[in-house]
């Protein structure tokens, strides 16, 4: 079947099998290998991307279901050469080691901060509880997200709910 998906602001039309998983569409058909898969069963969250405005586990969504929708992946966090505060936070606070879970963690964290710009540590832990990291014990991931929260509050006290999905400008 033919599907058209707007990924990171660019429209992609491809002929795919209806059974094709969204994660494979992104990785294999579009070459966006930043999103990973880790578990097959929607437990680990390495595959989290945004479907429209919502973080989803793309190993458990068919590419066909994204037809006509927008997808945002880790490759779109940095815009106009400017890193997202979440990306900055992860490197400032050593929020990653092997880097495999990182894209999914960051996509969920970005969505959290768009909805709740000032989360508590407990809220960050809860928001990330569907995602497994085997390297950090989560300690520095939580710090990274809180760092990003503080940074964007500093940078823009009146920060609106979230970045435009289709816009390519700085978030």
């Amino acid at each position: 079947m033919r599907i058209t998906v707007i990924v990171n602001g660019a429209s992609h039309t491809r002929e795919v099998e209806p059974r094709l998983l969204l994660i494979h569409f992104l990785r294999d058909d579009l070459g966006l290998t930043g999103s990973h898969w880790g578990c097959d069963t929607s437990n680990c969250g390495a595959c989290v991307v945004w479907l429209d405005e919502t973080p989803v586990k793309s190993c458990t969504v068919l590419a066909a279901m994204a037809d006509g929708h927008r997808v945002r992946t880790v490759e779109d966090l940095e815009r106009g050469g400017v890193l997202d505060p979440v990306q900055q936070g992860f490197t400032e606070c050593h929020g990653l080691q092997c880097g495999f879970c990182t894209p999914g963690m960051m996509m969920t964290a970005r969505a959290l901060l768009d909805r709740n710009p000032n989360p508590t540590a407990a809220q960050v832990r809860e928001a990330l509880s569907g995602q497994i990291c085997r390297c950090t014990g989560y300690e520095n991931i939580v710090r990274s997200v809180l760092w990003a929260s503080a940074r964007q509050a500093e940078a823009d006290p009146a920060r609106p709910g979230g970045p435009a999905l289709d816009g390519r400008g700085p978030a």
Binding site: L51, V56, T60, V61, G130
Partner: peptide
């Protein structure tokens, strides 16, 4: 129930 990302969908 499950986790926040699964609950989204």
């Amino acid at each position: 129930i499950a986790d926040p990302v699964v609950r989204n969908w």
